[in-house]
């Protein structure tokens, strides 16, 4: 039985350029700072950065194995840092409280330098 009280951290594979191109195509977000180096540099970045929404989608993978037991009622994210190609992102959940059938999580995504790139909150509600 999968356990909502003891979610394990997820260590993502290093971010690849191809991944960003695929996400651009699948999401329709073609902002060139995610795919073209020259455009990213013109915007003051050291290279292409991952879509914030891609990192947010990766955070949702923590809960993905439980989607037959309930649903994500609320999922909020603050984007606090840039994610570059080759970055290794670790997503760490913390169960804050359980109220009735709702699980409240605080989640952080941190890069290999220990910098927080995303802070999220999820409320997962079990089906009655």
């Amino acid at each position: 039985m999968k356990n909502l009280s003891e979610l394990s951290p997820l260590v993502m594979k290093p971010v690849t350029r191809l991944e960003l191109i695929k996400y651009a195509g699948a999401s329709g977000d073609y902002n060139p700072i995610h795919t073209i180096d020259e455009e990213a540099k013109e915007a003051g970045l050291k290279g292409v950065i991952a879509h914030g929404m891609l990192t947010m989608a990766k955070v949702s993978r923590l809960i993905s194995p439980f989607l037959e037991q309930g649903f994500i009622k609320s999922f909020s994210t603050r984007f606090t840092g840039m994610v570059y190609v080759d970055d290794v992102i670790t997503i760490t959940p913390e169960l804050v409280k359980v109220v009735d059938s709702e699980y409240y999580y605080q989640i952080s995504a941190v890069n290999q330098k220990g910098e927080t790139v995303v802070k999220s909150k999820i409320i997962f509600q079990l089906f009655k």
Binding site: I33, E39, A43, G52, K73, S74, S76, T77, F79
Partner: peptide
Amino acid sequence: PSKGLIHGEQIFEYSRP
């Protein structure tokens, strides 16, 4: 504008799957 914006925050609130 299509360039230069920063995505600060994103929230999803669902009534059901």
